[in-house]
Amino acid sequence: MAVDPMIIKIMSQVFNADINKLTDETTKDDIEEWDSLEHIKLILEIESQFNVKFSLDIIPELVTVKRIDEEVKKLKS
């Protein structure tokens, strides 16, 4: 199943990055701005847009687009 394009969109906004350079395969290592603080901002933004709440142990794992998508879908189902 394809990644929800909303995730890429939020990511481009949070990291101020070109949306065309972000793909389903993007990970933390591909984006220089993605430090621990930006990570929190990203997670909060995703939580508020999708109206979900990630558990504390999962948040540090959400460092790839795919993983975020997977977790959002799990919480939404």
């Binding site: 603080l37 929190i40 909060l44 939580e47 508020s48 990630f54 504390l56 948040i59 540090p60």
Partner: peptide, 14 residues
């Protein structure tokens, strides 16, 4: 409190 554990600030983003 997740925010406090991860970012040392206790308030909900909302």
């Amino acid at each position: 409190m997740r925010m406090y554990r991860l970012a040392k600030q206790p308030f909900s983003y909302k």
